[in-house]
């Protein structure tokens, strides 16, 4: 990993934080999920200088 300790894997290259295939309400829900996870990771301490990579289910 280059230069970053907290990596959240995005939805897809052309829309990392959204999903155009979903109806707007559902897309809004997954956008919230991504940002909630991001906030959670920002509050997580890094151990042994090992980067953390998270894939949202």
């Amino acid at each position: 990993m280059l230069g970053v300790y907290r990596v959240l894997v995005g939805k897809a290259v052309p829309h990392p934080c959204g999903d155009p295939k979903l109806p707007p309400e559902d897309e809004h829900k997954i956008m919230r999920k991504y940002m909630e996870k991001a906030l959670e990771m920002l509050q997580t301490e890094i151990v042994d200088d090992t980067p953390i990579t998270v894939i949202l289910e």
Partner: peptide, 10 residues
Amino acid sequence: DPNRLAPLNI
């Protein structure tokens, strides 16, 4: 929707 790139709305 630029929020798909950076969700300012959220």
